[in-house]
Design a binder for these strands. Structure first.
Length: 338
DNA sequence: AAAGAGGAATCGG
DNA sequence: CCGATTCCTCTTT
């Protein structure tokens, strides 16, 4: 098992919102590390002696990757158990990096005499995985920034930006409506709040929101100190004006928004995708979700596909979007393809 | 039932 | 003002 193979699991990891939370939130990184350590050890034992992975890997609750944190998510952890089984299955068959060590040592020695080397290898793997996972999460944050038209730095958010972020987070993690409890707060206010403050605002989901905000804050720090190349379009020194320049709060047109979504197939191909990119023909796969995303972007909580499609139809006579020659449900075409 | 077409009133930057 | 939203009726798939 090497870091790259682990990385290939990342798409599956992101499917689990709880682990997404656990990835970047400072103290939960530690729990991710302990989880990966257990996985690596399991793969190791499985290879050298045919020992099956410890049952703790399959019965997730014993693995404390959530720590004492987000208690309400233990329920989700149980629901997501199939994913864990999937991971153990995927890691066990392929474990090439441990070969060299395996050849020079008998299985028993692995545990006894080479634990130092083992720990070093583990540490290196874990470092790499952590870096890559963090990078992926930062990319997700970046995507959200573009989609919501907000800065990646919560400190610079206005009340409107805070509301957008809250709506987005609610949507992404299927939280009940909590944004109303954070009315009139700027990003600075939000950042100055402690976890206890969050919990006071929303007893049930305050901690989740706090964790999520923490991810964004961590991302911002990473960017500052580690000069991440994610925002290579603007300088490392992102001053207020720079941020506003890159995330202007200008009105966006629906057709632009749709193109934005189409440009991110990795994130949105499940709800909107090209049928023929050259001809500009695209299909809305999940009308409700696209409408919801549009509503979040425009701060229109009541947006639905009925209204969104009316807006698209306004483009007919403007010559921006039309129905393709052979009209099909939920399929549209940009008149001037990009 | 959901999607599609388009009229009409209204909203908001 | 203009583009988008909201609400509507009627038609099509």
């Amino acid at each position: 098992m090497n870091a790259f193979q682990l990385l290939s699991l990342y798409p599956r990891i992101t499917c689990v919102p709880t682990l997404y939370f656990s990835v970047l939130s400072n103290f939960l990184v530690i729990n991710l590390r302990s989880l990966l350590r257990t996985m690596i050890k399991a793969a190791w034992l499985d290879e050298t002696e045919g020992i099956k992975p410890p049952p703790t890997l399959v019965g997730l609750p014993e693995v404390s990757w959530f720590g004492p944190y987000i208690p309400c998510y233990n329920r989700l952890a149980v629901e997501e158990k199939p994913w864990v089984v999937e991971v153990t299955g995927a890691t066990a068959p392929a474990a090439p990096t441990s070969r060299t060590l395996e050849e020079s040592l008998t299985p028993n020695q692995v545990q006894d005499s080479s634990s130092k080397v083992e720990i070093q290898v583990e540490e290196r793997c874990l470092e790499q995985v952590q870096t890559m996972v963090v990078g992926e999460v930062l990319k997700d944050v970046d995507t959200a920034c573009k989609l919501l038209n907000i800065s990646p730095d919560p400190l610079t958010w206005s009340c409107v930006h805070v509301q957008k972020w809250l709506l987005w987070t609610e949507h992404l993690y299927k939280l009940p409506q909590v944004s109303t409890m954070f009315k009139e707060l700027t990003g600075k206010d939000l950042c100055s709040m402690t976890e206890a403050d969050f919990r006071q605002q929303s007893f049930q989901f305050g901690d989740v929101l706090y964790a999520h905000l923490d991810i964004w804050r961590s991302g911002k720090n990473k960017e500052d100190t580690g000069k991440s190349n994610l925002h290579h379009l603007h300088s490392v020194d992102d001053s207020w004006s720079d941020v506003m320049c890159n995330y202007p709060s200008q009105p966006i047109h629906l057709w632009q928004f749709l193109q934005e979504l189409l440009l991110k197939p990795h994130n949105y191909s499940c709800c909107i995708r090209w049928l023929n990119k050259e001809k500009g023909i695209f299909k809305i796969e999940d009308s409700a979700r696209v409408a919801r995303l549009w509503g979040i972007r425009k701060n229109r909580p009541a947006m639905n596909y009925d209204k969104l499609s009316r807006s698209i139809r306004q483009y007919y006579k403007k010559g921006i979007i039309r129905k393709p020659e052979v009209s099909r449900r939920l399929v549209y075409q940009f008149v001037n393809p990009v």
